[in-house]
Structures are given as structure tokens and as C-alpha cells.
Design a protein around this nucleic acid. Structure first.
Length: 280
DNA sequence: AAACAAACCTGTGCGC
DNA sequence: TGCGCACAGGTTTGTT
């Protein structure tokens, strides 16, 4: 489900509540959600510790603890992080609950909810290489140097289709299926265009549209699709879906050129939406 | 190196 | 109404 804008929106929506709070209790209802270390490591690693900061890189969320350790949460396809009053009923598929004591004495739950159970929660010491995939992430357009030079160096000359490159987390971290399609549409480039055939001007436009789409999507609180699966930690839906020009718009007239009809194909292993007229 | 398929799960929406 | 199938925002692994 969530891509960079959704993960960033979740982070911002829980940051204030979590930073400074101390973990008073940990409930784990689904072992699969803590499969990397098992429940004991997660419980022991969190109990009594306080959060000092939250970070995001790509689609990975980090909660730094005062003792130098961190909690990593990846939402994968269907994960949600929700803040809730401790007496609020548990939503279905709540797998991990952290009972937090805030500095003012208030208590609040941070709940990890995940129907498809692809997501996970890891508590780790940075010295141990427990989350090695993070070291393989490419540049994050919001937290790293994403100047045109950095972007060009990362993608230039790849003998691969454009969408495969945009989705490759080792090249650029955070773009998923929705935003890849939207970025390519705004850049007027096809999903199967080989990156090493792009002219400098097109690469430049691609860099600009990547930043544009991601920034606008964060501003809009991400995209909540018709299944309303994605909400931020306070339960608020995003509104960027109203700005989608191709994603889930198969059969609609292209709003950019007003001539093409949006097509959906299986491309780069995913469903891919594009305008066959104005994307080249 | 890159393209592709399958795997991990559950829920939903569609056609019949 | 009910059943079966296709499909879903991600990532890893293995195979061509």
C-alpha cells in the first residue's frame, strides 16, 4: 500500500505523540509481524525505553530509542500505524501494540495493524546488521541529496525500462506503483522507455516531475484509494488520489493531452497506467 | 545485467 | 445470494 508520501505522512502524524514517550507495555498478537527477531527481542528491546526521534528512508520508518537502539517498521502492502486511546476497541488485525506514557503523563497506544501480514516490526542495535536492506537503499528524494546531478548519476545509462528503474529501491528509495505511473505521465515518458535513450532534457524533466509529484503527494497527505486502506496515524485519509492522472484511470480521457485514452497493461511486473498518445 | 515469475497473506470486488 | 477468480500500495528469491 504505502509509498514514500504515505509513509512520510504517517511519520509526521505520529511524531509528536511518540517522541519523548516511554514504552510501558508491549502486546504482540501475531508472531509473523515480529518474525525477524521473535517477540522476546521486541518486548525486551522496547520495554521501559523512550523514543527520541522518528526517521524515514524510502518506505522504511525508524523510531530511535534513547539507548541508541531503534525500532524499524515496514508497512509493506497493508500495514497501518495508528494512535489510539488505550480503551478504544482493537481494530481487526492489530498485531503489535505499544502502550506509551507521554511526558505529560498521558497514555496512548501505538498500534501496528496489518491484514496481509507482509509488514514487520524490528527492534535492533545499529551495530548488529539486522536490517541490511536499508544499506542497499538508493537516494531518497526527500531526505538525501536529490540534486539533478545526484539523480543523473543514479539513473543515467541504465539499460532498463524507465518504470523498472523508478521502482528499484536501490536506485531511488520510496517510489512505488502509483507514483511511478504518475511521475512518468507528467514527464510524458512511457513506462518501457529505456533509460539510456533519454535525452538530457528529458532526464531533467523526469527529475523535476519526480520531486513535484512526491512533494505534492506529501502535501496532500498521500493517496487513499477506494478501499480506504491507507490512513495516517490519526485515521485521516489522503487526498492526492484526486490528482492522479493515470493511476486507476483506465479508459478515461487523458487530462494532459485530451486525445489519448488511459491504458492499463501488465508492465515491469505490475499493473501500469499510461497515456499511449502523450507518453513516448 | 535485466526481465520475469513466484512466494509471502488476507480482503474485496467482479462476473456468472 | 453464493462461488470462484482476479487483483491489490512491496520486497525477496530464484529462474531464464
Amino acid at each position: 500500500m504505502p509509498e514514500l508520501p504515505e509513509v512520510e505522512t504517517v511519520r509526521r502524524s505520529l511524531h509528536e505523540a511518540v517522541v519523548g514517550a516511554r514504552v510501558a507495555r508491549v502486546d504482540i498478537g501475531r508472531l509473523r509481524s515480529v518474525r525477524r527477531t521473535g517477540p522476546d527481542v521486541v518486548r525486551a528491546g522496547l520495554l521501559g525505553e523512550s523514543f527520541v526521534d522518528t526517521r524515514r528512508r524510502g518506505k522504511y520508518l525508524f523510531f530511535d530509542l534513547a539507548n541508541g537502539n531503534s525500532m524499524m517498521v515496514h508497512l509493506r502492502m497493508s500495514g497501518r500505524l495508528l494512535l489510539a486511546r488505550p480503551d478504544a476497541p482493537l481494530e481487526p488485525h492489530t498485531h503489535v501494540t505499544l502502550h506509551l506514557e507521554q511526558p505529560g503523563g498521558d497514555v496512548i497506544d501505538l498500534r501496528f495493524v496489518d491484514p496481509r501480514t507482509f509488514g514487520e516490526v524490528v527492534v535492533f542495535n545499529p551495530d548488529d546488521d539486522l536490517v541490511p536492506e536499508v544499506h542497499r537503499l538508493g537516494i531518497d528524494p526527500l531526505v538525501d541529496d536529490f540534486s539533478y546531478d545526484a539523480f543523473r548519476t543514479a539513473v543515467a545509462g541504465r539499460r532498463r525500462g524507465l518504470k523498472a528503474v523508478l521502482l528499484d529501491q536501490a536506485i531511488i528509495a520510496g517510489i512505488g506503483n502509483i507514483y511511478a505511473d504518475e511521475i512518468m505521465h507528467r514527464a510524458r515518458l512511457r513506462w518501457d522507455r529505456r533509460v539510456d535513450t533519454l535525452r538530457a532534457a528529458q532526464l531533467k524533466v523526469l527529475h523535476r516531475t519526480t520531486l513535484e509529484v512526491l512533494h505534492e503527494a506529501v502535501e496532500a497527505g498521500g493517496s487513499t484509494l477506494s478501499d480506504t486502506q491507507y490512513v495516517d496515524a490519526l485515521g485521516r485519509e489522503g487526498i492526492f488520489q484526486t490528482e492522479h492522472r493515470v493511476y486507476a484511470r483506465e479508459g478515461e480521457r487523458c487530462v494532459t493531452c485530451r486525445r489519448g485514452v488511459i491504458r492499463r497493461v501488465a508492465g515491469a511486473g505490475r499493473s501500469t497506467h499510461f497515456c499511449p498518445v502523450c507518453q513516448r
